[in-house]
Design a protein around this nucleic acid. Structure first.
Length: 490
RNA sequence: CGGGGUAUAGCGCAGUCCGGCUAGCGCACCUGGUUUGGGACCAGGGGGUCGCAGGUUCGAAUCCUGCUACCCCGACCA
């Protein structure tokens, strides 16, 4: 980690990127704006994937895979969708290279120009709805509840590891329904799954809400999102679920015969979370010693470091360690034994703190003599010496305790950084400190645009849970029935 | 695309203003030894077209011209 940068410092973004690189999660690739996810980082992503995949399947979804390339013409079919994505598409124009006889090297073969350019998917609505047209004819074909795990490309101007990369990994769900009601229920079901995952696995409190018209997904009638607060006071949109109405069905002519024998357009939803969640996880919990991973997502939950002066001591320790490891494994706790002789214990302690391993055991000659082991927890950096007897139960409880304690800390942070503001002056003042600002808004895009232009703050969402409260818009003074969340956002 | 900055060993940097022996430091790496309860120490060693191209000069990392790449701050976005 950079020496002078801390988790709350001015240049938080620099600190964050340093941390991601030093903790061995990812690095910038040779391709502008893309990243290499390293094995340790990928292991966290795999954990996230596994849990989300399970949650989707438990709610009746199935996985499938659609093409990476989308014919350009597909994009022009849904007007607002094109507008939303046109500015950031990578386009394939040729299919062949040839050697450059003049200057050496290779050049694009001008004779290999494609008839129709292919867009590298920035999202898959278009190609999927083009496919659904052939799959759906009757109400008996519905619903279709499909998810795909894939990579997408959005040519962003400015990138940040995990938070905004030109290529990223995600899952995107695309469902088709008979009725509007059913589609809306699906949209809400998914946002609840996302919130559940964020809070119970990532230990990151989120606010579920509706996006304002300005912030809505290109082509959606309604966008639900989960919003989390990062340690520098900025908001991070961490997952979205869209009610698409009949927009894509109409654009791609997807109709079905209803029970009544009438021809009707299909109702749609789409939803996704991405490797951005990795960024959220890092930013939500890390401290100046490095990552703090919630036990449920840590690639390994426990690391054991032996401390020894000679081979005999190491042999004694290793024997005890093997017993502990066996016990931990039978109760489903993942554990790594680091008996690498090339690094000293102090180095290992620092290294695993940087990597956010929730629990660290240290065992040395003293412990062998006393029948004990030293247990250090990553979240609050405390150390305790406990008896070997029953240590697996102790650790099992400790992991549960750490998981909830990390959540509580993040929740408390959000609570301390959520403010009600009633005037525009208060609003601007509060914005300097960051956090979620609860304010009245007149509901118009004009007001939202002006506030954004003047302060850079945007409406993060209209929380699903709120109290009715008469008030006046902080900007226009027009009446308002409820508060919405404003914040500076990533 | 605007504003600012950087480019010298795998990584982080000094040297550039004011040109001068064989381009230096820390970390990492290799060898040997001593170490091991919070990022060990000693000794020795390897590794460089100084971003690229051209120019000035007896002599260029250093001065001049052009180019390229990357980073930060904005605009845009999950």
């Amino acid at each position: 980690m950079a020496k002078e940068l801390t988790s709350r410092s001015e240049n938080y973004s620099q600190w964050y990127q340093d941390l991601v690189i030093k903790a061995d999660l990812a690095e910038n690739s040779a391709v502008r704006g893309c990243m290499v996810i390293k094995p340790y980082g990928y292991a966290i992503w795999e954990k996230m994937q596994a849990e989300l995949d399970r949650m989707f399947k438990e709610t009746g979804h199935v996985n499938a895979y659609f093409p990476l390339f989308i014919p350009k013409s597909f994009f022009s079919k849904e007007a607002s969708h094109v507008e939303g994505f046109a500015k950031e598409c990578a386009v394939v124009t040729h299919y062949r290279l040839k050697t450059d006889e003049v200057n050496g090297g290779v050049i694009v073969d001008p004779d290999a120009k494609l008839e129709e350019e292919l867009i590298i998917r920035p999202t898959s609505e278009t190609i999927i709805w083009n496919t659904y047209r052939n799959w759906i004819h009757s109400y008996r074909d519905l619903p279709i509840l499909i998810n795909q795990w894939a990579n997408v490309v959005r040519w962003e101007m400015r990138t940040r590891l995990f938070l905004r990369t030109a290529e990223f990994l995600w899952q995107e769900g695309h469902t088709a329904h008979e009725t509007m009601q059913e589609a809306i229920e699906e949209t809400e079901k998914i946002i609840n799954i996302y919130a559940d995952f964020a809070e119970n696995f990532m230990a990151m409190p989120v606010v579920k809400g509706l996006k304002s018209a300005n912030e809505r997904f290109a082509g959606a009638l309604e966008t639900y999102s989960i919003e989390a607060l990062m340690q520098d006071g900025k908001a991070l949109q961490s997952g979205t679920s869209h009610f698409l109405g009949q927009n894509f069905a109409k654009a791609f002519d997807v109709k079905f015969s209803s029970k009544e024998g009438k021809e009707e357009y299909v109702w749609a939803t789409s939803w996704g979370v991405s490797t951005r969640l990795m960024g959220a996880l890092v930013m939500a919990h890390s401290d100046d010693n490095g990552l703090v991973l919630p036990p449920k997502l840590a690639p390994f939950q426990v690391v054991i470091v032996p401390i020894y002066k000679n081979e005999e001591q190491l042999a004694l320790i290793s024997e005890k360690v093997k017993e502990i490891m066996a016990k931990l494994k039978t109760i489903g706790i993942s554990v790594k034994y680091d008996d690498n002789d090339n690094k000293k214990p102090g180095w290992k302690f620092a290294e695993y703190e940087l990597k956010g391993v929730p629990v660290r055991l240290a065992m040395g000659p003293r412990d062998i003599e006393n029948g004990t082991v030293e247990i250090a927890r990553r979240d609050n950096l405390t150390k305790t010496v406990v008896a070997l007897d029953g240590v697996e139960d102790y650790i099992e409880n400790l992991l549960v305790e750490i998981q909830s304690s990390i959540y509580d800390k993040a929740f408390e942070f959000r609570k301390q950084n959520t403010f009600k503001v009633d005037t525009y002056e208060e609003f601007k003042e509060a914005l300097k400190k960051g956090g979620f600002l609860l304010a009245h808004w007149d509901g118009t895009s004009e007001t939202e645009d002006k506030i954004k232009a003047e302060t850079k703050a945007t409406i993060r969402c209209l929380p699903l849970e709120y109290e009715e409260e008469a008030g006046v818009c902080i900007y226009s003074g027009q009446p308002s029935k409820r508060r919405v969340i404003f914040a500076l956002a990533y």
